[in-house]
């Protein structure tokens, strides 16, 4: 079985995010990019499936994502069998373009299962799993918290996934392969890859570079969204800040609660 894990580098949210001069995008120049945390979860789940079944795990990234190589090498250090960097999707591809590049790759290198993060913090034009599922014509399920290969009738190949809803409800679905899964959280916290191993992997190189050519997509989506303006939310209703030592702040909080009758005395 072959599992492909498309991964995306996104701005580290600890950074102060600035807007470009024309006001329609974020200024990527000085931003630190990190792996989308849900893709990290997806990779972990894929590795768990690999451990259970011996599947091959391929980490997939777009060459235009800043620092994506670091994430790809990390994926290998964690146990992915291969890493592939796709080119030819333009400078700052949106989800639609990204999905077309991944679909292009999968057309030539089919996968039984695609597991990717349920969302990314900046996928304004939609999330990758559903877009990709629709482009490929594969069944797809999002907000998944566990994936396991169905072993009891072996044919046709399928996975059993758990999909979550609000209020703690969930559903267990059996999905025929090939399928696309949007992962919310892996069964266990993503493993740690020691830097020395990552560096060894890096020194060995071995990211395959592929220019897949974009799969045909929706005609409308292809032109991208017309972003008129990006801005930080105006702080219309910013909290009133309590200051002072920890003890003073604690005192003010207790007073607030007391004035509402929530603390007696």
């Amino acid at each position: 079985m072959r599992i492909v894990v498309p991964m995306k580098a996104v701005p580290d949210l600890v950074e102060e995010i600035e807007i470009t001069a024309d006001g329609t995008g974020i200024d990527r120049e000085y931003l630190k990019f990190v792996l989308n945390e849900w893709d990290d979860q997806a990779l972990e789940e894929a590795l768990l499936v690999k451990e259970a079944t011996g599947a091959e795990v391929v980490a997939l990234g777009l060459g235009s994502d800043p620092d994506i190589d670091a994430s790809l090498y990390t994926a290998i250090a964690k146990g992915a069998d291969r890493a592939v960097r796709l080119t030819g999707a333009g400078e700052v591809p949106d989800t639609a373009t990204r999905a077309r590049a991944v679909a292009g790759y999968l057309r030539d290198h089919p996968a039984d299962l695609v597991i990717t993060g349920v969302q990314a913090p900046d996928d304004l034009d939609g999330q990758l799993p559903a877009t990709l599922g629709a482009l490929l014509g594969h069944p797809h399920v999002s907000v998944v918290v566990s994936v396991a290969l169905v072993t009891d009738p072996p044919e046709p190949p399928a996975v059993r996934v758990r999909q979550e809803f609000a209020g703690g409800r969930a559903a267990e679905l059996v999905v025929d392969l090939p399928a696309v899964i949007g992962l919310q959280a892996a069964r266990q916290a993503p493993r740690y890859a020691p830097i020395s191993r990552i560096r060894q992997v890096m020194a060995a190189g071995g990211i395959e570079q592929v220019d897949p050519g974009l799969a045909p997509g929706s005609a409308t989506g292809a032109s991208g969204l017309a972003v008129r303006r990006m801005h930080a939310p105006e702080k219309t209703s910013h909290a009133q800040m309590l200051t002072g030592s920890a003890d003073e702040v604690a005192g003010q909080i207790v007073d607030l609660l007391r004035s509402r009758g929530l603390v007696k005395g």
Partner: peptide, 17 residues
């Protein structure tokens, strides 16, 4: 460790800060 690897500090704050 992850913070140190990405931002060079253990606080997970942006290196620019």
């Amino acid at each position: 460790m992850k913070n140190l690897a990405t931002q060079g500090n253990s606080f997970g704050k942006s290196a620019r800060m």
